[in-house]
Nucleic acid binder design. Structure first.
Length: 256
DNA sequence: ATGACGCCATAGTGGCGA
C-alpha cells in the first residue's frame, strides 16, 4: 500500500499537476494540504475521474485539507483537531482507510516569530500532541502525515544558520516535534534514510529548487502497528520541477 | 532585504499569507 502527502498550494491552480502526479504515481491514499478553496469548489468530479474518492475540509482563501483513496471512500473520523472550539482554520481531517487511521494535517506556519501567529502554532502543536497520544493509546495502526512546517534537525535545512529564528526552525518548534515523536512515533523518511539530505519544499524565490536550497517539512509519523510494515519512503522531487508546480513536492511511503 | 506564487476584493492593482 502506497500513501502520499502533497501540499498543493491551491488545488484549483494545481489541478493539472495534481492529476498528472496521481496518474503517474498511483498512490492508494493521498493526503492534500493548502487547498485554498471553499468546500464547494473542491474538484470532486475530476478527482473521481482520476479513480479516487475523497473527503475534504475546505476554507475560503486559506488552509484546507483532503484525503483521497482508490480503495473506497475514506471513512471520516473527524474534521477538526480537538482542544479549541474557537479555531476556525481547516487544518486537520482524519479518516479510516483500509483499516488504517489516517490523520491529514496542515500545521500553522507561525511566522512572524515571536508573535500571535507563532503562539497559535505552538498551541496547535500542543493540541496535535495531545490528540496523537490518544491515537497511540488506541493501539490502532495510525499515520499522521502532512505539512508540519517544522524542520526537525539541521540535516533537514539547506542552510541551518539562516533559519534559527524562523518559526519553522526555532528551538520551541523543534522541541515540540521531538516531544511528539518521542511518544512512540516513527519518522518514516528518517527511519529508512537516516543520513541523507532529503527535502520536500523549495521556495519559489531565488531559484531555490535549481540550487537545491530546500527544507524537509512534510512528514510521515507512524504508530508502532504501522512502523513494522514500513517498506519504502521517498520524495517525488521531479514533480517540483514541473510547470506550474507547488512549492512542495509529494512525499510517499509504502507499507508491506 | 529582496522575492514568487495563489488567493481575494472590487479589479484592471494591492494586500495577505507564508
Amino acid at each position: 500500500m502506497k500513501i502520499a502527502t502533497y501540499n498543493v498550494n491551491g488545488i484549483s491552480a494545481r489541478l493539472p499537476v495534481l492529476l498528472r502526479w496521481l496518474a503517474e504515481t498511483k498512490p492508494d491514499i493521498a493526503c492534500l494540504q493548502e487547498l485554498k478553496a471553499p468546500q464547494e469548489k473542491f474538484p470532486e468530479q475530476e478527482i473521481r475521474n482520476a479513480g479516487y474518492e475523497a473527503i475534504w475540509h475546505g476554507q475560503k482563501s486559506w488552509n484546507g485539507v483532503a484525503i483521497l483513496s482508490r480503495a473506497g471512500k475514506p471513512e471520516e473520523v473527524r474534521r477538526t483537531l480537538p482542544g479549541d472550539d474557537e479555531d476556525t482554520h481547516s487544518r486537520y481531517i482524519e479518516a479510516t482507510v483500509d483499516g488504517v487511521v489516517v490523520g491529514c494535517l496542515y500545521l500553522p506556519n507561525g511566522n512572524p516569530a515571536p508573535g500571535p501567529k507563532f503562539d497559535y502554532k505552538l498551541r496547535w502543536f500542543e493540541r496535535l500532541t495531545h490528540h496523537a497520544a490518544s491515537l497511540l493509546h488506541s493501539g490502532k495502526p495510525v499515520i499522521l502525515t502532512g505539512d508540519y512546517n517544522v524542520m526537525p534537525t539541521e540535516l533537514d535545512v539547506y542552510k541551518p544558520e539562516n533559519w534559527v529564528d524562523d518559526a519553522l526552525f526555532r528551538p520551541e518548534v523543534r522541541s515540540a516535534f521531538h516531544t511528539l515523536v518521542a511518544q512512540g512515533w516513527t519518522d518514516a523518511i528518517r527511519k529508512l534514510h537516516p543520513d541523507e539530505k532529503i527535502y520536500t519544499f523549495w521556495d519559489y524565490f531565488r531559484n531555490a529548487y535549481g540550487r537545491n536550497a530546500g527544507l524537509r517539512i512534510d512528514h510521515f509519523l507512524l504508530s508502532p502497528a504501522v512502523a513494522g510494515r514500513l517498506h519504502a519512503a521517498g520524495v517525488d522531487k521531479d514533480v517540483r520541477g514541473w510547470e506550474k508546480s507547488s512549492d512542495h513536492a509529494p512525499v510517499w511511503i509504502e507499507l508491506k
